[in-house]
Design a binder for these strands. Structure first.
Lengths: 187, 187
DNA sequence: TGAACCATGTAAACAGTTACATGATTAA
DNA sequence: TTAATCATGTAACTGTTTACATGGTTCA
């Protein structure tokens, strides 16, 4: 399961509590593997039961700091080197595009325009994050930077694709209404 | 739920049985919204119970052909026009990249090289599909074509990104071992 | 002393996967 | 007559989301 490996990886970098981890999921990791508070705490207990992580410190308010055990690190490394994840596909936005035949051309264009403006906004946000973050040579920083760059590139091509797609739909709409134009030419 | 809307959309195009729909999921729709046989049949019964689809014909071997009802079409159109899906993020491959700090530089490079070769293979497959399919002006064809183009573009930038990322990791590896080179220069 | 934040947990519902089970029809 | 294909369904499990529940600590 990916969530457990995400936790193993984060705890291998440095010890943290469930509370800390939830914040890291909300901030940096949300982009590739979102997880809720509920899931994180449940999974931490499961990993601790399995001996892949262990409590290294207890703090106020019942705070428990975990770290990855040698067994946990072995499992993480096995997962990273021996399994090849199929590139995850599930994309609700593109499913919508696939079903756009149920709408008028105008509505389809609106859908795609919405995809475009969403991409523009997100690209700006990600680029700002890239520019405002102080990157260093630590693994978390180097690989986090790679993932962020991936996010930026994907968002940019989503924007470009949406613009192209709008054009495609308009061409189709025009060619269909060719014989019966709404507005005849001036001659 | 997305699966139900996918089914509403497919059945709005033309009537089909569960068996037909499973095949369509495996073929064209797998790229954006995979679904299992088990899921499809269960969901069809749920949609029929809710009056969003209805049986229009029965065939041999208990075959039931469904079509989308007016209520179903309304719901589909509402979903397409009124909900704005957050661009789905969950990406196991990129989660792996994020956690690459648990591996050596060499292993990390191997991981990224694997991402690249996977993308190369997939891009070839998708481009072949694009070139071999006979596209027409039906909505299913037009919008299917848009989604396929999206898949091709994403795959191509995954390939390019992976090449760039390998370079980035090698630069880091080199700068870290700078003071202690394995192979000293010839002077 | 009250608001903001720190901190962990459980329950219920929903979504998705894997495996099993059954049987009809068609074509070699 | 038997293998391939058509066709539908259920059960058990795993993963994910939403909501609820509880209480400690810090700071203005």
């Amino acid at each position: 399961m990916s969530l457990s490996h995400a936790l193993l990886g984060l705890l291998a970098e440095r010890p943290a509590s469930g509370y800390d981890l939830v914040k890291r999921f909300d901030q940096s990791l949300a982009a590739v593997w979102p997880a809720t508070q509920s899931q994180v705490y449940t999974e931490l207990n499961r990993l601790a039961d399995g001996g892949l992580i262990t409590v290294v410190a207890e703090g106020p308010r019942g705070r428990k700091e975990y770290t990855t055990t040698p067994a946990g690190l072995t499992e993480l490394r096995r997962w990273l080197t021996e399994t090849r994840p199929r590139p995850e596909r599930r994309n609700e936005q593109m499913l919508g595009v696939f079903l756009l035949g149920a709408l008028s051309h105008e509505e389809a264009v609106a859908y795609l325009t919405n995809v475009e403006s969403g991409a523009v906004a997100e690209a700006a946000q990600l680029a700002a994050l890239r520019d405002e973050t102080e990157w260093d040579d630590s693994p978390g920083s180097v690989y986090g930077r790679l993932v962020l760059e991936w996010g930026i590139r994907v968002t940019e091509i989503r924007r470009d694709w949406a613009r192209w797609a709008v054009g495609q739909v308009k061409v189709r709409a025009a060619s269909i209404s060719e014989g019966v134009p709404d507005e005849p030419g001036p001659w």
